[in-house]
């Protein structure tokens, strides 16, 4: 086995995948809006085990990477805050402990790219932002051309093309017939694919990137959360 990537997303469902290139070695996903703190870590442990990436009792300097995981990819939202932070702090901490790089990708991009791979034309990805609002972004040929943004469902620009994401299923009066459930939540395997593609592009542009250099800040692959909203300083915070 080569050097695999652990990818996770907590923007909608709690989802974990281990991928090696284009091959998904193992994956799991559960929709549990209040369950992130409890469920994510055991799910990662189980998915790693199923992927054949054993947990090394004594993590050496090369990290677990020597035998399996060589990088981590995490969805950076936009998403309700508490669940999103569970994914981000987990990815960052695993990367620190294993000594491997961690890269972030806008979670909506996974749905945009997955749709773009199978269908022609534009697509709008809509996710639940709670408080009767949605997060959304628009894609053409799998690439984001507008967003991510947060707004009322009725204020999402009604472009041509399909609408996917769980947010679309929540507001059929605005977005019409609900998309199939398979197009509700971001797939972390797609996040890993997008990160690899962007990293390749960056390497071409910079003439080679030093491996093992954690991409923790800024840039296309940074792991800062896409909150898109200021903290609520008056009532109770959302999520």
């Amino acid at each position: 086995m080569g050097v695999a990537t652990l990818a996770l997303d907590t923007s909608s469902a709690i989802s974990v995948a281990v991928v090696d290139g284009d091959v998904v070695l193992a994956r799991d996903s559960v929709f549990a809006p209040r369950g992130h703190a409890e469920l994510l870590a055991p799910m990662i442990r189980d998915v790693l085990a199923r992927a054949g990436v054993g947990l090394l009792g004594d993590v050496g300097g090369a990290g677990i990477g020597g035998a399996g995981i060589g990088s981590i990819v995490v969805g950076t939202g936009p998403a309700p805050f508490t669940g999103l932070r569970v994914g981000l702090v987990t990815a960052r901490t695993l990367a620190l402990a294993w000594g491997v790089p961690v890269r972030g990708v806008c979670s909506l991009d996974a749905l945009g790219a997955a749709h773009g791979a199978a269908h022609e034309g534009a697509v709008t990805v809509v996710a639940d932002a709670r408080r009767r609002e949605v997060y959304w972004a628009r894609y053409e040929g799998g690439e984001r051309v507008e967003g991510p943004a947060v707004s009322l469902p009725s204020d999402v620009p009604a472009g041509a093309g399909a609408v996917v994401g769980r947010g679309a299923a929540l507001y059929p009066e605005v977005f019409g017939e609900a998309p199939p459930e398979s197009a509700w939540h971001p797939d972390p395997a797609w996040l890993a694919r997008i990160a690899a593609r962007r990293l390749g592009r960056e390497r071409l542009a910079t003439g080679g990137l030093v491996m093992g250099e954690p991409a923790t800040g800024g840039g296309d692959l940074g792991v800062d959360p896409l909150y898109l909203r200021r903290p609520d300083v008056h009532g109770t915070p959302p999520s």
């Binding site: 932070r85 901490t93 402990a97």
Partner: peptide
């Protein structure tokens, strides 16, 4: 939640 998630990640990774 942030502290517990970080602690779990350390316990898992190490």
């Amino acid at each position: 939640t942030v502290g517990v998630a970080a602690a779990k990640a350390l316990a898992l990774a190490l």
